[in-house]
């Protein structure tokens, strides 16, 4: 469960106040809103990348409001993927496991499993430079899911993709996320994307979060 309770965040002169949101386990939430309305700020606050000035963030019932990002157990997929430029794809996937000093055999197995699920096995030795937009996002998703976090935050992961591969990647994302059994929060400004992906829709308008309700296709 992801629960954001009456959150206040200040970013420069911009104040987001009284933001609340709740996603039950395994739900796929989509947070919508215009550019600059503070979607990313909310997401970063949940991930622990931005200090909050009020409210609470609960992940699976645990108050993580003051925990460092590393201890929150959230996978994070930023907008452009932000793949580490100096690491081959396999090392990106293995990164979080190597940090945790997980035995090598387990790391290898997990990397292979993720690569197979995401269809990037042939890219494992490549550096990020030269990967297509879709490939980058698949690697970024795999990297975020490597240590099996229970929660996943994605910041417009599909906005830079071409129309013709969007369908395929959407499908892949939903499948993978269902398979990994994570509770996901996905930011987008595209209604079509929101309709295709989300179980639950939220609208961020004028600093207020409105639940639009379960997504009805």
């Amino acid at each position: 469960m992801i629960a954001v309770d009456n959150l206040s965040i200040r970013q420069g002169d911009f104040l987001l106040d009284g933001v609340s949101l709740e996603l039950s386990d395994g739900e796929y939430g989509v947070l919508m809103g215009r550019s600059g309305c503070g979607k990313t700020t909310v997401l970063e606050a949940i991930c622990g990348l931005r200090p909050i000035i009020g409210g609470r963030i609960l992940l699976g019932g645990r108050d993580v409001s003051v925990l460092p990002p590393a201890e929150r157990g959230i996978g994070y997929v930023p907008q452009d993927g932000a793949l580490f430029p100096d690491m081959p794809v396999w090392e990106q996937l293995a990164f979080s496991m190597l940090i945790r000093k997980i035995p090598k055999s387990q790391v290898e197995a997990r990397v292979r499993e993720l690569a197979k699920d995401l269809g990037i096995t042939h890219l494992l030795e490549r550096l990020p430079v030269g990967l297509s937009g879709g490939e980058r996002q698949r690697v970024a998703l795999g990297r975020a899911l490597a240590v099996k976090p229970r929660f996943l935050c994605m910041d417009e992961p599909l906005s830079a993709l071409d129309e013709d591969i969007l369908e395929e990647i959407c499908e892949l994302f939903t499948q993978t996320i269902k398979k990994e059994n994570v509770t996901a929060l996905h930011i987008t400004h595209s209604k079509a994307e929101a309709a295709r992906l989300g179980d639950t829709l939220f609208h961020l308008v004028g600093g207020q979060l409105q639940k639009v309700g379960p997504n009805e296709e």
Binding site: C47, G48, L49, P69, P78, R100, R143, A146, V147
Partner: peptide
């Protein structure tokens, strides 16, 4: 930031 969420200090 990504590295932090992946478990780094």
């Amino acid at each position: 930031q990504v590295a932090l969420t992946l478990g780094c200090n």
